[in-house]
Design a protein around this nucleic acid. Structure first.
Length: 427
RNA sequence: GGAGAGGUGGCCGAGUGGUUGAAGGCAGCUGCCUGCUAAGCAGUUGUACCCUUUACUGGGUACCCAGGGUUCGAAUCCCUGCCUCUCCGCCA
């Protein structure tokens, strides 16, 4: 949610930002509604002031035994007017809110303008594996060895679900544990395990709704939503709170399954783990003071990259352009890991700073040293998504015979085991 | 799922229709005072929005879980929802 005062006073800034994003939003309607809101508020409050005064007089009159019937009758008219104006105000506010919730965030000045072609690679790490053979995609390796079983997953749930078996399940679990431990011990994050279903307010708070209605699973009977990312419950942990300055920065790490409908992606990326309705992700969330937000973003990206470095997986980091950023983001870095079988990079993390955009929606504030209440800034990033990480390990660490070596950093999490054989057993 | 109780300011806790944004206590802050600690005295302490202003200057409105309703007027009465607690049942 953008600052209404900013929209009112400098609409050209917002117009430029929307144009950079390639967003067609109607700012004029918002400006008009905002004007109406101020006018009607003013009117109705004047009437209420009169009503309050009259109330005192009636009370005093009754106490001293005077006849106040005439005044009571007179106030009936005022009360009626108030009711009408209150109704109008409510309607204006509802319309204004619903429009406001659809306006995306303003990109930071350092973000390159343009569509996805304007994304800039800012770092590249590691060397691409160069075996003397044809690298197989992970779905082939997985199905042949039986550690991934999409066919049985389809029987019980449908397309875009996966069953992990034996060494595959263990590897998935090891990755999650490894990333949690790393972020807790070296990154100083506090671990959270949140609810996987949340209410509508939480979804609005972080900006998934109302825009992404079609991409989210909804539990109809209860008006609850399956989280598409841990960002939603974890950021909203502090909604409606005024934090103490000393509590900031707050740094949380959370492993959760994530659920996405992936509507409109039929026929795309149908093989393997890269685009599933349910996948696992370790998420990093920060709530910080405004002046530290961009430094915190750089740290956040480093925390995510460190995981790939420890696992010795080659990756590159991009800064996303204004046209390619997500709805709520002010600036985003994507980290993409190399998949040797698919012969391409896949996004494994997206690290974003949101300014006060989410904090306004979720009403997350803090009291500074001067006693002034201001909005926090929020950030988050994957650290990391296993659905892109596990394939990277399978594909990059594979050998000619279809066996898969384990990254050395992970061996301790696998009970000392170092290799999965071509038939899915531990060697 | 069945039966009951309840949700008031940072915390505790009064308050069942009329100067109650809200008694009292605790905590916090500001003065005064005591050679330190403790005690004492006086004052003060929320958020959002509207109007006004050079200014968080001044004025106003709203907020006692949320949303409706009754009324000239509601923290107080009625309805709905949400949440918490107790007992019974069921259960990983």
């Amino acid at each position: 949610m953008l600052d209404r005062k900013l929209i009112r006073e400098q609409p050209e800034i917002i117009r430029q930002a929307l144009a950079d994003r390639g967003c067609e939003c109607d700012l004029d309607e918002i400006l008009e509604l905002e004007k109406q809101r101020c006018e009607v508020t003013s009117q109705v409050e004047r009437l209420k002031s009169r009503r309050n005064q009259a109330g005192e007089q009636i009370a005093a009159g009754k106490k001293s035994g005077q006849d106040v019937q005439a005044e009571i009758v007179a106030m009936r008219g005022i009360s009626g007017e108030i009711k009408v104006l209150d109704g109008r105000l409510k309607e204006v506010e509802n319309r204004l809110d619903s429009e406001l919730l659809k306006i995306p965030n303003i990109p930071h000045g350092s973000v390159p303008r343009g569509d996805e072609r304007a994304n800039q690679e800012i770092r590249c790490w590691g060397e691409l594996p160069r075996g003397e053979f044809e690298y197989k995609p992970h779905w082939e390796l997985g199905e042949r060895s039986g550690i991934l079983d999409p066919v049985r997953a389809a029987k019980i749930a449908g397309a875009r679900f996966m069953v992990y078996r034996g060494a595959g399940a263990r590897l998935e679990r090891a990755l999650i544990q490894f990333m949690l431990d790393l972020n807790i011990q070296e990154g100083g994050y506090t671990e959270i395990f949140p609810p996987l279903l949340v209410n509508r307010d939480a979804m609005i708070g972080t900006g998934q709704l109302p825009k992404m209605e079609n991409d989210i699973f909804r539990i109809q009977a209860e008006e609850l939503y399956l989280i598409p990312t841990a960002e939603v419950p974890v950021t909203n942990l502090h909604c409606q709170e005024i934090l103490k300055a000393g509590q900031l920065p707050i740094k949380y790490v959370a492993y959760t399954p994530c659920f996405r409908r992936e509507a409109g992606t039929y026929g795309k990326d149908t093989k393997g783990l890269v685009r599933q309705h349910q996948f696992n992700k370790v998420e990093l969330v920060k709530i910080v003071r405004p002046e530290t937000a961009y430094a915190e973003l750089e740290d956040l990206v480093q925390d995510a990259e460190k995981i790939l470095q420890k696992l010795e997986l080659p990756y590159r980091t991009l800064v996303l352009s204004t046209g390619d950023m997500s709805f709520a983001s002010a600036k985003s870095y994507d980290i993409e890991v190399w998949h040797a079988g698919a012969k391409r990079y896949w996004e494994v993390s997206s690290c974003s700073v949101f300014g006060d955009f989410q904090a306004r929606r979720a009403n997350i504030r803090f009291r500074d040293e001067a006693g002034k209440v201001q909005y926090c800034h929020t950030l988050n990033g994957s650290g990391l998504a296993t659905s892109r990480l596990l394939p990277a390990i399978m594909e990059n660490y594979q050998e000619t015979d279809g066996s898969i070596n384990m990254p050395p950093a992970l061996v301790a999490y696998l009970g000392g085991r170092k290799k999965i054989t071509p038939d899915g057993e531990w060697e």
